[in-house]
Design a protein around this nucleic acid. Structure first.
Lengths: 335, 335
DNA sequence: CTGAAAGCGCTTACAG
DNA sequence: CTGAAAGCGCTTACAG
């Protein structure tokens, strides 16, 4: 069943059929009606390969996800995918290792699959700075800001990581904590974790608290396994800590288990704050105090942005999505 | 840059270039070498739309996932996607609601996108029985068995849900439990949860234990939110329970929180067993006793199967992947 | 072993 | 408003 059959069956030419399918205005109501009839009767679906061959574009939008255990990204992915589907766009997703170079992967994707646009769920600005210039399609970076890079085809939506982190420190200090450990991420200044760390350090400074990196900070990937080990190291190394701020709810989860194994209760002995606000965190025992990133907004605005950029490519938009500090059960006020 | 340019640059015709690209045997070594040179120099990538237009097929393999909070499926998805990538296959994923009809969705997918093959991560046999006959491409169903349906283009890989569940009951009884509650799934006999329930009932019978469905069973979706509420209902309704078997680790997680809120400790007051064996479950407090489904095997064998079926379609394979009962900290031996 | 040519199913100026 | 025709970039008989 092709457009030719529809033409024959409806008594019109293939050009008119094509125009009806693509909602062109220059078609008589009569022709449109008759052709639509035949299309519905026959359940005809145009061949997308032929269509895209002509239109010199492929149908899909690529989604590149960094990190595997990232429940936050899965939540965003799912919402993006549903919204894309509602707009009749096809999404092709790729999971990359947390340390992989997503931009060089995107380059090969562009050569081989020619996507209309690319979503990056997570991204290391180092790679963007170096190679993003080779990527010709509109891109939307989520959970990190590409603002300073000033590429005209790179938009971004992010939480204000520094401000949120500073707010966490404010809150912990307000609850009487002065010995606060930081868990997660790494010290590369092109990653979100660095912004979070910067926010923490600003918070410490504001409250005239020392920050001794070797005693108060332990990096790790976004995984329970690693965060568990990292939390063990941090807690063993520094027994004066009364609170830990983990740069991810999953990281906090590993820290919970580590505290437990060291005989420290949360929040009685150690107060704990996470980051992300995944659904699961409301069911932790104790329920996790955390920074909630608004995944619904990121997905919605991200898709809107992508759809606009596909049609009017060269205009980058950078937006900050408000966070919310969810004060729950895992922080204890101490004197 | 098209095949025409490569032909011009190399001094050969486009037919020969095409043959080289597709590894046809009837090309002289000289021509092959020269053409490969030019292809590498120019970094040429054939246009897949044009290719597939001719070959009357599209490139992608569809993956349909049922349920959103399903960490198990995400683990499988990620592994499938990586293996597909390694085989140069493109994957298009769709997330469906846990109650959605995945088969009618697959039908529309076939009409609109013409995928080479479809993976189903989770599936309700009711829908398969009714409509799968309309699906013309090779399919692989994961975590449920399509064996009894006898479709020649439907293969499946599954854990032996009934046997695993019976083993859980055996274990709990061995640990002294006689009042065991069941949490999760529903009573439709076309879903995996029914097989698990059947296994439990067989276990109860074997040990001469009563099973009072209204007192010992509470259905729920695969989500923390729902399992939390369901566990509250079950525990409030039946205070004699000493153990709960949850049909999913995430369901167990909700049950943990519910037990806590009712002042019941795990495992001191309530023993708990999960299902799936997601990575996270090893970090629960207490670590979860659970049935581990082998996601690596499912992904590996699933992709192998798919790749074979794409080339030799009409031969269905149904396999049972061995499970493992992981005995951990969430079950207590009582007298 | 190789090239010229037909044709896959569409879209879109162009002419009317 | 409509149709005939060119052309998108490939693959593959066909003829040599």
């Amino acid at each position: 069943m092709t457009i030719k059959d529809i033409a024959r069956l409806s008594g019109y030419g293939i050009g008119t059929v094509s125009r009806v399918i693509n909602n062109h205005p220059d078609v008589s109501d009569k022709a449109r009606q008759r052709i639509m009839e035949v299309i519905e009767e026959t359940n005809f679906q145009p061949n997308s390969n032929a269509k895209h061959l002509k239109m010199r574009a492929v149908s899909s939008i690529a989604i590149i996800i960094k990190g595997n255990q990232n429940i936050l990204f899965n939540a965003i992915l799912e919402q993006i995918q549903q919204r894309l589907l509602a707009n009749d766009e096809e999404a092709v997703v790729s999971y990359l290792d947390e340390d992989a170079n997503e931009v060089s992967y995107a380059m090969s994707l562009c050569r081989e699959k020619n996507p209309k646009g690319i979503f990056f769920l997570g991204g290391d600005l180092e790679y963007f700075e170096k190679d993003f210039k080779y990527i010709p399609v509109p891109c939307v970076l989520l959970t990190n800001s590409g603002k300073d890079l000033k590429f005209t085809n790179l938009s971004s939506l992010t939480t204000d990581d520094a401000a949120a982190s500073e707010a966490v420190i404010d809150y912990l200090v307000d609850q009487g904590h002065t010995h606060i450990g930081i868990l997660g991420g790494n010290l590369s200044d092109t990653q979100v974790s660095y912004k979070r760390l910067t926010g923490c350090i600003a918070g410490f400074k504001k409250h005239h608290l020392d920050f001794q990196q070797d005693l108060q900070y332990e990096p790790c990937h976004y995984s329970v396994e690693e965060s568990y080990e990292a939390a063990l190291r941090l807690l063993k190394r520094n027994s004066s800590l009364t609170a830990i701020f983990a740069f991810g709810d999953i990281i906090a989860f590993g820290a919970m288990r580590a505290s437990f194994d060291l005989g420290k209760r949360i929040p009685e002995d150690i107060s704990l704050v996470g980051y992300d606000g995944i659904d699961l965190s409301r069911f932790f025992v104790p329920r996790l105090t955390t920074v909630r990133q608004d995944t619904a907004q990121m997905a919605k605005q991200g898709v809107d942005l992508m759809l606009q950029r596909i049609h009017y490519p060269y205009k980058a938009v950078h937006k900050v999505i408000p966070y919310e500090l969810i004060k729950s059960e895992s922080v204890k006020k101490i004197n």
